[in-house]
Write a protein that binds this DNA or RNA. Structure first.
Lengths: 202, 202
DNA sequence: ACCTGAACACCGTTCAAGT
DNA sequence: ACCTGAACACCGTTCAAGT
């Protein structure tokens, strides 16, 4: 994965410590209340003024990215590891399932992830870039092996999984429903032996 | 479709007119700005005090339901008509495509529709009940005809389409992307001649 | 160079005072 | 029986005044 650093890293020791505390507090608060938790709660939890938080992280997305960065890198490495998984089609579907799991780990996470997809200049977009590239490679391998349909786009599949994560997030059996929907997606992209291709009428 | 009436229909003539104006204003505002538009805008547009709006429609969902009711009934009738469509599997998929189209007609609509699915006591849930029943019948016919997999649940498919509508709603080519994702869903639920069934590993 | 709490803006919801 | 505008609450963002 590429190394990323914030635009303006604080130079003073107390400032750096404040930044760390904010990220730790944000991790706790987002985990407990979801990613839409009031930002003031994070500042209070970190023991700093709300304006300090705002200067370090000008947007909710910025602090969320700091919280998620490591997880994204981990998912990227996971995609790389799965490049040795067999069969290639199932290795990619396996990664999709783990990505889905991740998007359900924080309440409300699908929304900022989907937004980031559309804004290449956003911090979250950069944070996801590594895993996006690695997972795309995993897909291409599966397509070249003849396991998965060649006409599906990687970005469509990431979006599709985000849609599944979003719609199932408040369901009572969210894990179960999400995996049922993912199974439909998976069956929809596997290459059929006798290639029967369908289109939905406009 | 069953007939539904508000809990407390206004008796006074001016009150009834205010109610009508509010629904008309809401239709315009939701269409122009999406379903998250400020409610005060609707009251102002209708020429009434905000509290009047709030009394007629205690929640955003309540006024949204008034705006959408006819569309839901229409989609329900459409499902009934398609019961004569052939082949049965494609008739159901056709309905899903029209439902998807509808959910993309107002910005932000997938969210309240998904919420309503989980709350049987909500106004929107009742508003969708007719089309839900009709579309389920359409699915069952397709399954009994052997066109579509018997192990998929109607509610899962409605949710799946809402997920697709949600994730594509801000995309530049939202119609195109949504129909690509729906094509994957459709291929995932069609019954394969030689029944090959896959599962995504836990 | 960085901090703080208060002020401001926005919007949903409720209330006091009408007619 | 119904109306109104103002008040209140919540929360994101900005600003004035520190050290």
């Amino acid at each position: 994965m590429t190394t990323r650093t914030p635009a303006t890293p604080p130079r003073r020791t107390d400032a750096r410590r404040n930044r760390e505390r904010l990220v730790e507090a944000a991790t706790r608060v987002f985990t407990a209340q979801g990613v839409d938790a009031p930002l003031d709660t994070i500042a209070r939890e970190a023991g700093v003024g709300n304006a300090t938080m705002y200067r370090n992280f000008p947007t909710r997305e910025a602090i969320l990215e700091a919280v998620l960065r490591d997880l994204h890198d981990e998912l990227g490495r996971r995609a790389q590891d799965l490049l040795r998984g067999e069969p290639p089609g199932e290795a990619f579907i396996r990664w999709l399932a783990e990505f889905l799991d991740y998007t359900q780990s924080l309440l409300g996470l699908p929304e900022p992830l989907a937004s980031a997809t559309r804004d290449e200049s956003s911090a979250l977009y950069a944070s996801c870039e590594g895993m996006r590239v690695a997972a795309t490679r995993l897909l291409v391998r599966a397509q070249e092996a003849g396991d998965l349909r060649r006409d599906v786009l990687a970005d469509d599949l990431f979006a599709h999984v985000l849609g599944i994560a979003w719609v199932t997030q408040y369901a009572g059996d969210k894990r179960a429903q999400a995996s049922r929907l993912l199974a439909v997606l998976a069956d929809g992209i596997r290459e059929a032996p006798q290639s029967r291709r369908h289109r939905v009428g406009s």
